[in-house]
Design a protein around this nucleic acid. Structure first.
Length: 280
DNA sequence: GCTTACCTGTCG
DNA sequence: CGACAGGTAAGC
């Protein structure tokens, strides 16, 4: 569920609430959410560590500690919520991370896909598989670099390419569909078939869509909540995602196809597939 | 590439 | 009941 704008919203909301707080011993209701190291060692090692800063790379939220790093990935249904006082709601509660001052963070996750990694060394992200991630599409890629990246994968179709976290990190199904619609590119266009202008338009569309997503506090189609448990509002701005059969702004009905195994929404008129000689 | 698997839930 | 769900890893 959460893509870059949702994770960034959580990061911004959480940072002022938890920086400088010190963890006490975690409570694991579902130890499977702890991905590294072993759950027992995770609990031992987290206790007493202080939060220095909150960072983000792609869809990973990174809590920098006085020693090491706590990485969190929410996958589809994960939530990371701060509570000043009181106990967390019992529904799908997986991990409770209490602080010394009595406040806490809780991680809930209906589908159990999400996870937490406690890394000893900020420089070695390999236990979380993060060392292979591409650059963060929002923070670490310029327009020129994006054009160069597209040229490296000329035969890849845009939709699977943009979803590939090893290509660029942060985009998911919603924001890819919205970005492609905004710059009027068909999801099955090959990266190498784009003109320079089309490549630039794609980059700008991605930037704009992510920017607006962040400004709206993310998209809540069902599960997503921010650091205080509140919903986002970008779902009200979606042009194509989840809108099969509804009219595009051009009046044509939005279609749903499957690309790379993912439901893909687009406007067959605005995003017409150019024909096969690869030049247009 | 594609498919399947991981899980649990909602919707038609 | 089957299809689908914002993500990703593994296995062809």
């Amino acid at each position: 569920m959460p893509e870059l704008p949702e994770v960034e919203t959580i990061r911004r909301g959480l940072e002022p609430l938890i920086v400088n707080k010190v963890f006490t011993r975690p409570v694991l209701l579902f130890p499977g959410s702890i991905r590294y190291p072993e759950p027992d060692r995770f609990c031992e090692q987290l206790e007493g560590r202080r939060i220095i800063a909150l960072k983000r790379h792609g869809k990973y939220l990174l809590l920098e500690l006085n020693c090491g790093l706590l990485a969190v990935h929410l996958r589809m249904t994960g939530r990371l919520v701060y509570l000043e006082k009181g106990g967390p709601p019992s529904g799908h509660l997986r991990v409770v991370l209490p602080f010394q001052d009595g406040s806490l963070l809780y991680f809930s996750d209906m589908r159990k896909f999400g996870g937490l990694w406690l890394l000893d060394n900020k420089e070695d992200l390999s236990p979380a598989g993060m060392h292979r991630l591409g650059p963060d599409i929002y923070e670490q890629v310029t327009e020129e670099e994006f054009l160069e990246l597209l040229q490296k994968r000329p035969r890849s179709r845009l939709k699977p390419l943009l979803l590939d976290q090893f290509f660029v990190a942060g985009l998911g199904n919603i924001y890819v569909d919205e970005s492609l619609h905004r710059c009027r590119l068909h999801p099955c266009r090959e990266a190498g078939s784009l003109s320079r202008e089309e490549g630039k338009a794609l980059f700008r569309a991605i930037r704009e869509v992510l920017e607006e997503g962040i400004r709206c506090g993310g998209t809540t189609s069902r599960d997503y909540r921010d650091a205080r448990g509140e919903k986002g509002t970008f779902q009200e701005q979606l042009a194509v995602y989840g809108r099969k059969g509804s009219p595009c702004r051009c009046g044509t009905a939005i279609e749903r196809i499957v690309v790379a195994g993912r439901g893909t929404y687009y406007c067959p008129r605005c995003q017409a597939e150019k024909r096969g000689d690869g030049r247009q």
